[in-house]
Amino acid sequence: MKNKINIAVACGGGIFTTTVVTEKLEEILRKNNIKYSISPHKITEVPNITGVDIIVVTGKTSEKNKAGAPVMLGLPLFTGVGAEEFTKQFLEKVREIMNNG
């Protein structure tokens, strides 16, 4: 059982959507009493990010993470369209990783 989840957030430029989506993820994790660390990245870095449990991207990518971290499209947290559904899937994923870690 892991006691903390490590998340990478990545967008095209590592600026706008990353900043907003990071804030929303922090809010979700705090509300659910889950310890976390979140780091900002650019989408081009997705294949080579190491040491994270989940990667949340806010833009298009077909790249997989070489270290095996699952990649989720977190744009709903930015646009609000489908945000609830994303939050549910995200929390399921986080809990699955923490229980198996």
């Binding site: 095209g12 430029g13 989408i43 833009g59 646009t79």
Partner: peptide
């Protein structure tokens, strides 16, 4: 940046938000 990572948003009223630093 717009060519590599487009910024059109699939919101109810569709908009685009080009930005870079």
């Amino acid at each position: 940046r717009e060519k590599a990572y487009p910024t059109g948003l699939p919101t109810e009223v569709q908009i685009a938000i080009p930005h870079v630093h």
